[in-house]
Amino acid sequence: MNKRDLDRALESVFQRALELTAEQERGLHRRILASRQEPGAEWEAFTQVMIGLRARFQTSLPNLSQLSRQPYAPGWGSPREIRVISEFGLHGVRPLRMKRGAPQFLLNWIISGRQNRKKRHPRAERWEGANHGRGS
């Protein structure tokens, strides 16, 4: 068998063994088309989830501007915290205007301000005790 015949025979064998059928080719094309659509569908689903989450958080987590519109109601916080605010106030903010449900960081800020003041004026504690006893 010469080289050309051998080549022809090998071509025939390879065609029969490895051929991509028309059905396979169509199936593959469908899969590619479907995969091309997927990123759009995923993005759409992601957008829907994010919109849902946003709506949920808006109702369950009021922001600070909403807090500031709430009226003051007595009974907020522990007795010590109320005393701290009512006795010392803070930078011109009247104690009774402190809002119910104010964030914890604001309370910490108020308490730390009181502690700093104690450091600067050691006698204030005695004065405070005396005043407190007199007042009650």
């Binding site: 080549d7 090998l10 071509e11 064998v13 390879f14 065609q15 490895l18």
Partner: peptide, 8 residues
């Protein structure tokens, strides 16, 4: 071989 005999 594949390029030669399958894709000719």
């Amino acid at each position: 071989a594949v390029l030669r005999y399958f894709l000719q």
